[in-house]
């Protein structure tokens, strides 16, 4: 055997061992593609089934969504109608609220004005009471003066009666003396002339002229009690109404009756109906009352 053949045999053996080692190493470390294929196929099948189930569920969910959407659309439309209705009601309520707020503000101003008027009436009442007290004191003084004057007048009357008696006696004496003098002078053809007194004769006392003024109060009847023949009117002591005043009740041009005031309040007065004829028209609330026709 030649040397070259031997070298080739050795090289062939070494290369064979080397290449076989490489092949064995590669084959031993190679991936099991069949197993991978199988596992991937199983995984794909399961994924297909999962996808089919998911699609089915998706379809069901879509159907449920459509049903729910239709239901919710109906509810939304109902709610929209309710919202529009409630908005209309809200507008009405707001309008009413504004009206009531305006009324409340008006009432507040009215109450404030009434309170102010009541305060003024109270002050006026106090002033009137003070004037009344003054008038009562003056009345007491006047009554005392009246009593003194009455006593003095009685004395004067007594004196006058005495003087009149003396005057009659003097006149009788004068007549007697004049008759005697005439009898004495008749023979001489004379008679006595009436005596002219030097003291001026006083005039007879005459009543002084009385000047009157119309009261001029006007109002309305607020309430009538025909059973007790009482009525109340819309003006009171604040307007100048006093107890004892007489008001004439008229309706248009018709005279109904009279009201004699028996009690007064600040803004109203109560009186008794007079000249009430049951055959004619009866007084009622709203009729005009006046002090002067």
């Amino acid at each position: 055997m030649s040397t070259l053949t031997k070298i080739l045999i050795v090289l062939l053996t070494i290369s064979s061992i080397f290449l076989c080692g490489i092949v064995v190493t590669y084959v031993a470390n190679a991936d099991d593609y069949r197993q991978k294929y199988t596992s991937l196929r199983a995984e794909r099948d399961s994924l297909k089934e999962t996808t089919a189930d998911t699609i089915e569920k998706h379809k069901q969910k879509v159907a449920e969504k459509d049903v729910l959407e239709a239901k919710l659309s109906g509810e939304i439309s109902k709610l929209n109608i309710e919202i529009s209705t409630l908005r209309g009601k809200l507008k009405d309520v707001e309008a009413q609220s504004n009206i009531w707020e305006k009324r409340v503000s008006d009432m507040a101003s009215v109450v404030e004005t009434s309170s102010q008027t009541a305060g003024e009436q109270v002050q006026l009442l106090k002033n009137t009471l003070a004037e009344l007290n003054k008038l009562k004191a003056e009345q007491i003084k006047l009554i005392a003066q009246f009593n003194d004057t009455s006593a003095t007048l009685l004395e004067k009357f007594a004196i006058i009666q005495t003087l009149e008696t003396e005057k009659k006696q003097l006149i009788e004496e004068k007549v007697e003396l004049q008759s005697r003098l005439n009898k004495t002078l008749q023979p001489a053809g004379k008679f006595t002339t009436p005596v002219v007194t030097l003291t001026p004769r006083k005039d007879i006392a005459r009543p002084a002229p009385v000047f009157t003024q119309k009261i001029g109060l006007n109002g309305l009847i607020t309430d009538v009690d025909l059973k007790n023949k009482m009525a109340s009117i819309s003006i009171g002591a604040a307007d100048g109404v006093k107890e004892g005043m007489k008001f004439h009740v008229t309706r248009g041009d018709k005279f109904i009756c009279d009201i004699l005031i028996i009690d007064t309040d600040a803004e109203e007065a109560v009186g008794a109906l007079e000249l009430l004829d049951l055959a004619r028209e009866q007084p009622r609330a709203g009729d005009t009352v006046t002090t002067n026709l």
């Binding site: 053996t13 064979s16 069949r34």
Partner: peptide, 28 residues
Amino acid sequence: YTVILGLAFCVVLATAAFVAFKCYIQYE
């Protein structure tokens, strides 16, 4: 050299058998 050559042949044969076994195991 004959033994060496036989050894190389055995190695190649074992490698082929191993590859065939693996192919059969993995791909049937």
